[in-house]
Design a protein around this nucleic acid. Structure first.
Lengths: 326, 326
DNA sequence: TTGAAAGCGCTAACAC
DNA sequence: GTGTTAGCGCTTTCAA
C-alpha cells in the first residue's frame, strides 16, 4: 500500500535512491540513508516482492515438486529442504503431486528461480520446457542424465536387504514393490528388485515378485494373498517401509507371527519403522533434502552441477530372524 | 521468454486481444481466438505469473505458516490444506516456523493473497500488519478474537482424556504439556491442562503437572524424572502424542510396564499412535487443514467468516488400564 | 552521490 | 470485437 515513491517523497529523494538503500548499495551518503530509513520506518513501508520480481526477473522462490502425501519419506526429505531454505533468501513453493501429470502443467505459470523434484522424475517434455524457462532443476531421490541430484544406489539397497535375508537362511523370498505405472517414472522400486534378484540368483534362492500401488493398504491386500499361498515365502522384502507395514498387518491378519513365521525387511527407515520394530534399509532422508536444496542453491549461483549418492545402512530390528524349519 | 506482444504480432492482433483470450473473455470472435491460440501454440508461449500479479494485484498464492517440522500433527493438517488447494487456482507457499518469530518478518515482502496459520497464533502486531496489507488470515488449530478458523475444544479434550483415566480408577495422575513460552502463543496445552484439572478436582484425584519443550525427547527426560519419584503417578496424560511417546520411552527406561504399572494417554491421534498402541484423544487432523483451506478460499471470495470446532473422540488402545493396587 | 526515465509483461479502461 | 495506452511498483542505466 505504501510505495517506494511515497517513501522517496517523504525523504525528499528520488526513487532510485530509496531503491539503493533498500538494496544496500554503498553509493548512498550516510545522511541520505538515514533520512530514507526514517521515512521507511515512519510509513511502515514494505517492498513489494512482485514488482521487484518483475523488474529483476528473479522471484526468490524455489519450487518443490513432490508426491508429498503419498510417502512419509517425502515429508522427511522436505524437512531437510525447508531447513536449508530457511537460511537462504528463498521462499519455498510446494507443488504437491497426487497423480502423474506434467510438472509444467502443475507449475502453471508460476515463476520459480529453481526447482527441486523429490521422489519423481520429470518427463523429457517437462525438462525441455523448464530448460527454455532457464529454470535449473535438481533431483532428490532420483537420477537423470544431465541433471544434478542427490540419490542412493537403489540396486545396492536391494542387495543389502536381500543379502540379510539370505544370510539368515531364507530361500523363498517375497518382493513387494511399486506398480511401475503409478509412480511418476520413478525407478527405485525396480532397481531395488533388480538388486534382490541378483542376490537371490547368486544364493540359489527364489524371489516371488508382486507389484502394487504404493501405500500401506494396497500392500496389505497383496501381501495377504501372497502369504496365503501354500508355498508362501518365509521372508518378504518390501520396497518401502510403508509397504512393509502393510505386510506386517497382513501377517497379523493371517495369524502369522513375525519374525518366527515370517521375516520382513523394509526400505527408507521412516520414523514409524522404529516403532514397528521394523528391520529396514536406512537412508538419510532429511539429509537428502538438505543436500538437494544446497545443490540447487549452488546451481543458482552458477556453480558446477554434481550428482551425489548417499550412504545406505541396514538397520536390524525385530522383524527378521532365521526361518523356522517346520 | 515469449511475451504477449510477440503472440499478438504473430496473430496480427493487439495485446489486449491476446490477454482476452488468455483470460477467457467471451468478447473475442471465434476466428480471432483461433488465430491467437495457434500463435500461442506455435510460440510455446506461457503467461508470466509475476507480471500478471503485479497488474492485477493478486498473486494466486496462499501462504501457510506452520511449525512444520516440530509436530507430525502439523504435517497431517498440511496434507488437508494441500489437497484442497490442489483443486483451486491457488498455489501454496510454505513458511516453516522453527522458532517464535514475527510472522510478517518471516513472510518478508512475499506477496500472498491469504494466509493460513497452523498451530500457532500470530501476534497482535503481525495481525495489524497483515490487515494493512489486506491479507485475510485463517487459523487452523487456534482461536483468536475476530479471526475465522478451525479448532477444537481443547479444554473438553483435556476432560475426555482425564475422565478416562479417572474412570479407570486412577487417583494420582501426571500431566505433561508444552512449556508455554516455547510455543508461539499457542494455548492448547494450557487448555488441555485446565480440562484435566477440572476433572481431577471433581473426582478428588491429584494432578501432577510438568511442562516441557515439545517433542519426544524432552518429554522422555521429564517423564523419567516424574516417574522416578517415590509417589509417582499411576497414569500420565500427555498434551500431545509426541510427548506421550516420550513418556512411553521413559517407562521402558525405568522398567515400568504399560499399562500395568502405568497408563498413558496422548492427544491428536497421529499416525504413529496407532503403531504404538497409544490410547489418545483423536481429532480430525487432515480435515482441519482441508476445512481451514476451504474457509480461506471463501474469505477470499468475500464470504462471511466463521469459526468451526471439530469433534473429538477418545480412542482407547493398549496403553491404559486400571491401576494395579500394589 | 543523486535523480529522471525507461522498461519488466501483463491487465483494464477507454475509444473506435 | 478489437486496438491503444496507461499503469502495477520496482530496478537500473544514463546523465548530471
Amino acid at each position: 500500500v505504501t510505495t517506494i515513491a511515497e517513501v522517496a517523497e517523504r525523504a525528499s529523494v528520488g526513487v532510485a535512491t530509496v531503491s539503493r538503500v533498500l538494496n544496500g548499495s554503498p553509493a548512498v551518503s550516510d545522511a541520505t540513508r538515514r533520512r530514507v530509513l526514517d521515512a521507511i520506518d515512519e510509513l511502515g513501508y514494505e517492498r513489494n516482492a512482485t514488482a521487484r520480481a518483475l523488474s529483476t526477473g528473479r522471484t526468490a522462490m524455489l519450487g518443490v515438486v513432490a508426491p508429498f502425501l503419498a510417502q512419509p519419506s517425502v515429508v522427511a526429505r522436505l524437512l531437510g529442504v525447508s531447513r536449508v531454505l530457511a537460511g537462504s533468501e528463498y521462499q519455498l513453493i510446494l507443488f504437491d503431486v497426487e497423480q502423474p501429470k506434467p510438472i509444467t502443467e502443475l507449475l502453471g505459470g508460476a515463476q520459480v528461480d529453481g526447482l527441486l523434484c523429490i521422489s519423481l522424475l520429470p518427463s523429457e517434455a517437462d525438462l525441455e520446457r523448464l530448460a527454455r524457462r532457464q529454470v535449473p532443476v535438481v533431483l532428490v531421490d532420483g537420477e537423470h542424465d544431465g541433471l544434478p541430484g542427490i540419490s542412493i544406489d537403489d540396486e545396492e539397497g536391494g542387495r543389502i536387504a536381500t543379502r540379510h535375508l539370505v544370510e539368515l537362511g531364507h530361500r523363498r523370498i517375497g518382493f513387494l514393490g511399486d506398480h511401475e505405472l503409478t509412480v511418476f517414472g520413478f525407478t527405485s522400486s525396480r532397481l531395488r528388485r533388480a538388486g534382490a534378484t541378483e542376490v537371490c540368483a547368486a544364493a540359489g534362492a527364489e524371489l516371488i515378485c508382486r507389484q502394487v500401488r504404493h501405500g500401506r493398504e494396497p500392500a496389505r491386500v497383496i501381501a495377504r494373498e501372497m502369504l496365503s499361498a501354500e508355498d508362501r515365502p518365509t521372508a518378504v522384502f518390501a520396497a518401502s517401509d510403508q509397504q512393509a507395514l502393510g505386510v506386517l498387518e497382513a501377517a497379523e491378519d493371517l495369524g502369522l507371527s513375525v519374525p518366527d513365521d515370517l521375516s520382513v525387511v523394509g526400505f527408507d527407515d521412516i520414523e514409524v519403522a522404529r516403532y514397528a520394530g521394523l528391520t529396514t534399509v536406512s537412508q538419510p532422508l532429511e539429509r537428502s533434502g538438505a543436500d538437494g536444496a544446497q545443490l540447487l542453491l549452488r546451481c543458482l549461483e552458477g556453480a558446477a552441477q554434481e550428482t551425489v549418492r548417499l550412504h545406505l545402512d541396514l538397520v536390524v530390528r525385530a522383524t527378521t530372524a532365521p526361518p523356522t524349519t517346520t
